[in-house]
Design a binder for these strands. Structure first.
Lengths: 270, 270
DNA sequence: GCCAGGCGACTGGTCAGACCAGTTGATCAC
DNA sequence: GTGATCAACTGGTCTGACCAGTCGCCTGGC
């Protein structure tokens, strides 16, 4: 739907015409914030490209004319955003990393771990993201993508049932190629982050299934699912690929979650 | 698709049987990191619920037995993650905010500004998330949800064309209710974060449209779109609601992005 | 000439102590 | 009772110090 009224998104109240120019509440801006903002701006604008170095902390103290603790708090903020990395003793100063998807993954991971959402929501969300990846990939893939995906599915089949580790790597690679074919890095990142979050959350339960000897079955079913999706991708049938993707996730996880979560997964099926 | 091999998700290498137990590289863990981790753990686990207070910094110094700068750097990290908020002079200590979508939208905004992805990807991603919210809501909504949504659409119509601010608030509320009806908080938070990131990213361009007097048209079209979606929700027709949602976003933003991004948005339409 | 080792000048990480401005709640004068 | 005052906090910032790690240079031995 969109429709944040143009130019009025979230509080930028400046310059409302016709009104008596109310004063905007002024809130104190901390020194470390301004320091962090200045540096972040230079990184995002490309003036400080990835791989370049920040001046040493004591040099920044001189340039910004603030205390070292202020500089350090600013650098800590930038570091926790993944924009820079610092290492003790490095005479070249902190390294600029540029924008990385890790922050996004961490934020998603926190969201997933919080009590706000449970395993059911997580898997449901993954059904959404995966399915939409397939939908896009069905429309935009190249022949080369299809070839690589087919090869990966073949490799997965080889690993059944004795190398679940390699199987899982091939599976992740399969998803990566699909996401790449869809051409939306953002969607791909989120899908990956949610994938990891699900893996973390359900690992213990699945380990039990593995001990019970169900791992081979799981892998075999997974290969079949991948092949079906692959066929839909080859036909360029986005909706079918999406539906198959949702079904695959549902079938894989439904046996391992609570009845309530199962209902949730069913609701997301079509 | 799923299929991270059960029990082998992401590097938890401990106790691989049969291998010669290689030593893991040990990397120094900073004091402020351990402090931040301990506090974050308590927040995520619910031991420190939103609204509760952290001890004062000088008290934390005693409890963790580290210097105040260490405590402050840890708090800075937590604050930049949106988990806490501190205010000078507050005798109650820093306030716990809990997990919020703000971090996510910041990360998304940075990503969209960077070369890694762009505005087109962001809007495309929003098409995906919004459409899927509708799909879930169509299936799971209650009569009460429908009533509230109808009322919100009515209110939006009232605000056209003279109160874009109130219009935008009603619009956001509409999306919130849809997300709530769908029952997936994770999806709702992500949709909200992407919504905000898009709003931030495109604000300047839309302000131009506003000056050109296109704002009223924009709002009118938006109301029509909302009504169509609402009808589909009422019919319980998830796929139709999803398609309408994608079309609405496409129509709203396609005129304001590059030709390349327009192609991307078209690809996400069906 | 070359390489190993050591030395020194850095780096970031941490701590201690101080001051400031802001907030709050009790106290006191009216 | 009400309003101003004040003292005891708070977080934000600065200074100066020390430590351990890292790197570059320089020197001594080969």
């Amino acid at each position: 739907m969109s429709a944040e009224s143009p130019g009025h998104g979230r509080g930028h109240a400046g310059g409302e015409p016709g009104k008596p120019a109310a004063f905007a509440p002024v809130r104190p801006v901390r020194a470390y914030q301004r320091v962090a903002e200045q540096i972040e701006e230079r990184i995002l604008s490309g003036a400080l490209p990835p791989g370049s170095r920040l001046p040493a902390e004591r040099e920044l103290v001189r340039q910004f004319d603030v205390g070292r603790s202020t500089i350090r708090e600013a650098l800590r903020v930038l570091q926790s955003s993944g924009l820079i990395r610092s290492r003790p003793g490095d005479p070249q100063g902190a390294e600029v990393l540029g924008v990385s998807p890790d922050t996004l993954s961490h934020a998603l991971g926190r969201l997933a771990r919080s009590h706000l959402s449970g395993l059911g929501e997580l898997i449901q969300f993954r059904m959404v993201l995966d399915a939409e990846s397939y939908r896009l990939a069905a429309r935009l893939h190249t022949e080369e993508d299809l070839r690589r995906l087919t090869e990966l599915a073949d490799r997965m089949e080889e690993y059944v049932p004795h190398d679940p580790h390699a199987f899982s790597r091939a599976d992740a690679e399969f998803h990566r190629v699909v996401a790449e074919a869809g051409g939306n890095a953002l969607l791909a990142l989120c899908a990956r982050a949610v994938h990891d979050a699900v893996a973390d959350a359900i690992e213990s339960k699945l380990a039990r299934a593995e001990r019970a000897g169900e791992a081979a079955d799981w892998m075999r079913r997974s290969v079949v699912h991948h092949r079906h999706v692959l066929a839909a991708l080859g036909d360029g049938d986005g909706p079918r690929a999406a539906r198959l993707g949702r079904e695959a996730l549902h079938d894989s996880y439904a046996p391992h979650v609570s009845e309530q979560d199962r209902a949730r997964l069913r609701a997301a099926l079509d």
